[in-house]
Nucleic acid binder design. Structure first.
Lengths: 132, 132
DNA sequence: CATGTCACTATACAAAAGGATACCGGTATC
DNA sequence: GATACCGGTATCCTTTTGTATAGTGACATG
C-alpha cells in the first residue's frame, strides 16, 4: 500500500513531465521545424519549401512560438529586400536526444509497417500510417 | 553542391521519420496514456482518474487508436459487471527511449522556467508554460 | 511596363480535435 | 428508494488547426 502510493506518485510525476514537454512541443509542426533547422539556419521561404505543405500563416505562428520558448532566434538583415533567417539556439540542443529517439522510432515503425510483420487483423486497416 | 544535395536529402529523411512518428503519437493524450500504463495494466476508470482531465469519449478514442497501432491490448473479463483492462504490448517497448527523452526534457524545462534563468524579455510572457 | 521575389499579414472559411454533459443497463451499497 | 460504480456511447459545443486567397512595398528581371 505504501509502495503503491509511492509508485503512483512517481508515475504522476512522469505523466506531468511528459505533459509539460508536449505542452511546448505540441502540434504537427514544431519538431519537424526544428529538425529542418538542425542542418543550419534557414530563411522563411526555405523552411516553407522544405516542409512543403505548411502555409505561411501557420509557419509564422509556429516560428513565433518556438522563439518564445527560446528554441529559435529570428535575425533580420537589412538587405534589400530584407532577409530574415531563423536559427536554433544553444538551448534547443537539449532536444537532441528526444529528436533522435523520435527519428529512430519513426524510421523503425515505417519499416515495420512496410515490411508487413504485423498481425493480420490489423494489416487490413489502412489508417495506421500513410505510406506514400 | 553535391554535398549540399546529400545533406538536404538526409535532412528530408529525418523530417519524414519524425513526421511518421508524430503521425501515430499525435495529440495531447497518447504518450501520457502510455506512460500511465507503464507501471502495470489498468482499467478504463483508473486511467481516466489518473489523467484527470480526459473525458471518456476522448479516452476511448485514444485507446482504440493505440490498439490499432499495437501499443496496447484490451482484455475483457466477464465478471459482473464486466471489467476491461488495458495493457501495454511488447512492441510498445520500442517507445521507451522516446518516453524517457520526453520525460527528461519535460522535467528539465519545467525546472528552467520555475528557476527563472531565462532572458528578461521572455520572462514577462506567461503563456510559455502553465506552472500550477 | 508587366511580372516575380521576399517575408510576411489579413480575411474568411472548413475540418479536426477536444470538452461538457447526459445517458445506458446492471450491480452493489447506504 | 437514492446513490454510486462500471465501460463506455450520443449529442452538442468550443477551440484549435489548417486552407485558400489576396495584398503589402521595394526591388529585380524580362
Amino acid at each position: 500500500m505504501e509502495r503503491a502510493k509511492i509508485s503512483t506518485e512517481v508515475c504522476n510525476q512522469n505523466i506531468t513531465a511528459v505533459r509539460d514537454a508536449l505542452y511546448v512541443l505540441n502540434g504537427k509542426w514544431k519538431i519537424p521545424l526544428i529538425v529542418s533547422l538542425i542542418h543550419g539556419p534557414k530563411r522563411f521561404k526555405e523552411i516553407q519549401r522544405e516542409l512543403k505543405d505548411i502555409t505561411p500563416k501557420v509557419l509564422s505562428k509556429e516560428l513565433r512560438e518556438l522563439e518564445q520558448n527560446e528554441f529559435v532566434t529570428r535575425k533580420v538583415f537589412d538587405t534589400v529586400p530584407v532577409s530574415v533567417i531563423y536559427e536554433l539556439t544553444e538551448y534547443s540542443k537539449c532536444l537532441d536526444d528526444l529528436i533522435e529517439a523520435l527519428r529512430a522510432f519513426g524510421q523503425q515503425h515505417r519499416e515495420r509497417i512496410i515490411g508487413g510483420n504485423r498481425r493480420e487483423e490489423i494489416m487490413e486497416d489502412s489508417t495506421v500510417l500513410e505510406v506514400e
